[in-house]
């Protein structure tokens, strides 16, 4: 029996080695949230990103100067402010009076530059040159002057990983700014969509979508995209709504991290959409 086993191992050694390695690889995937693996990953991407940042700093004679960065930051601030004003415009005068208590949110912004993009149809991740030393924390939303880009999922001292809208693991609660219809926006590898929308729902092509108050991670009223197609599925009962993001993600270079994180208590209580 033992000899037979040795003979079998010798004959199929290549296949056995490959099968074992493939099995190990598969078994590692669910362990990604383990703290030790998390620390190792943070350290590794931080080190690698540091080398790239150093090279960029040496060769980056065409990079944006400080003034451009400041202007982009101001642009993004104006975008957020403009969106708040748009929201206000939709309210009537009486509601405005009632909303006197409402404090206009002022989001502090941290400018950053994309130093690496993990380009893929399904795993859109950016590495940016700002980290915990810049007060960036996991869960902070990332925007540019056009709207939402994604959310910070890992931070090292000087670098962070941003999970973008074009990542199948990223889901965000959004609402129609006109009708206040709420939905969960996902990425299917090609398009952003909201599925299982009742056909009776007031969601029309051309409507603007912003982040919803129901989001456990992202502050409300950050522009996300515009509805460009509505398809009826499942015997005409449900629709699938396709959304064009405001941000041109493949060409994003400069971005801003919104220095806002919802309270830990809320985060723990509500559905945490970062967890796969």
């Amino acid at each position: 029996m033992f000899k037979l086993l040795i003979k079998f191992t010798k004959i199929y050694r290549d296949y056995l080695v490959a099968a074992i390695l493939l099995l190990i690889s598969l078994s590692v995937i669910p362990l990604n949230n383990h703290s030790s693996l998390h620390t190792l990953k943070t350290y590794a991407f931080g080190t690698f990103a540091f080398i790239n940042a150093a090279i960029n700093g040496f060769t980056g004679i065409f990079s944006d100067d400080e003034k451009v960065v400041q202007l982009r930051k101001r642009n993004a601030e104006l975008m957020l402010e403009n969106n708040l004003l748009r929201e206000f415009a939709l309210e009537n005068n009486e509601l405005k009076r009632l909303l006197n208590y409402y404090k206009e949110s002022e989001y502090p912004l941290i400018p950053a530059t994309v130093i690496s993009k993990l380009v893929s149809d399904v795993q859109g991740n950016f590495i940016i040159n700002a980290g915990s030393a810049d007060s960036i924390m996991v869960g902070m939303p990332v925007v540019n002057e056009f709207g939402l880009i994604g959310i910070v999922t890992e931070t090292s001292r000087n670098f962070s990983i941003v999970r973008t809208l074009t990542n199948t693991d990223f889901k965000v609660a959004v609402k129609d700014q006109r009708s206040n219809f709420e939905g969960i926006l996902s990425w299917d590898g090609k398009q952003l969509f909201i599925k299982n929308v009742p056909t009776t729902a007031d969601l029309q092509v051309g409507d603007r979508l912003v982040t919803s108050e129901f989001s456990s991670l992202i502050p409300p009223l950050i522009p996300v995209g515009i509805v460009y197609k509505k398809e009826t599925t499942l015997y005409g009962l449900l629709s699938k709504v396709y959304v064009e993001p405001f941000v041109d993600l493949p060409h994003v270079r400069n971005l801003l991290v919104v220095k806002v994180i919802k309270s830990r208590q809320i985060k723990d209580m509500e559905l945490n959409l970062l967890v796969k």
């Binding site: 490959a18 598969l26 078994s27 995937i29 990604n32 190792l40 990953k41 690698f48 795993q123 991740n125």
Partner: peptide, 18 residues
């Protein structure tokens, strides 16, 4: 690659082994 890219550890391990 998984480590340095900040992606999900295990996916590239699997595909590159294959």
């Amino acid at each position: 690659f998984d480590l340095f890219s900040g992606g999900i550890i295990g996916i590239s391990m699997f595909t590159k082994t294959l």
